[in-house]
C-alpha cells in the first residue's frame, strides 16, 4: 500500500489508487475531486497544457493543506496527487481523495482542499493555443495584491 499521501508526479494518476489511500473501516464516505484538462476556457481552444511545480515546496504545501483539513475535520483522511509536465485534453491534472465517517464532511473537506491548492501550492500551468501560449496566474482573480495573496505558510 502506498503511504505517500501528498505527491507531485509526472506519470498519470490513477483514481482507484488514490481512493485506496484513504478508504478505512471507520469511513463510510469517500469523495474525490479530479481536475482534468478542459479544451475550452473562456471561448479559447486549448491544445495542451504544461504544468510546472516548485516540487519540494508544493509537496510541503499539500501537507500543510492536509494538516488544515485534519484540524477542521478531525476524522477525515486526505490524499492529494498533482501531475506536472505536458498534459493533453481530458488528462487528469490533480486528484484529491477524502474519506470521512459521514458524507457531508467528505464533500466539504474536499472542496476546501481544492480551494487551498489554488491559493498556496506553487504549481503553474501554461496553456498552448493555436495562436500562442501563456502562463496562467491568479485564477481566483483576486487583484490586486496583497488582498489576493496566499496565506503565509
Amino acid at each position: 500500500m502506498n503511504e505517500v499521501l501528498f505527491e507531485i508526479v509526472t506519470e498519470p494518476i490513477n483514481v482507484d489508487d488514490m481512493v485506496k489511500k484513504v478508504v478505512r473501516r471507520e469511513a463510510g464516505a469517500v469523495t474525490t475531486f479530479i481536475g482534468t484538462v478542459r479544451e475550452i476556457t473562456k471561448g479559447k481552444v486549448t491544445l495542451y497544457l504544461e504544468y510546472q511545480a516548485y516540487a519540494a515546496m508544493a509537496v510541503k504545501m499539500l501537507g500543510k493543506i492536509g494538516d488544515e483539513v485534519s484540524a477542521k475535520w478531525p476524522q477525515a483522511k486526505i490524499a492529494i496527487s498533482h501531475r506536472v509536465g505536458r498534459l493533453e485534453i481530458s488528462d487528469v491534472a490533480v486528484i484529491i481523495a477524502v474519506s470521512t465517517p459521514h458524507r457531508k464532511d467528505a464533500y466539504e473537506a474536499n472542496e476546501y482542499a481544492i480551494e487551498r491548492i489554488k491559493q498556496i501550492v506553487p504549481i503553474w500551468k501554461k496553456e498552448f493555443w493555436e495562436d500562442g501560449e501563456v502562463w496562467i496566474g491568479d485564477q481566483l482573480e483576486k487583484t490586486p495584491y496583497p488582498s489576493g495573496k496566499p496565506e503565509k505558510g
Binding site: G35, Y51, Y54, H82, A93, I123, W135, Q139
Partner: peptide, 10 residues
C-alpha cells in the same frame, strides 16, 4: 529564495 507568481495548479 523562490519567486512565486500567482499559482494556477488544480
Amino acid at each position: 529564495v523562490a519567486f512565486i507568481p500567482p499559482v494556477s495548479g488544480g
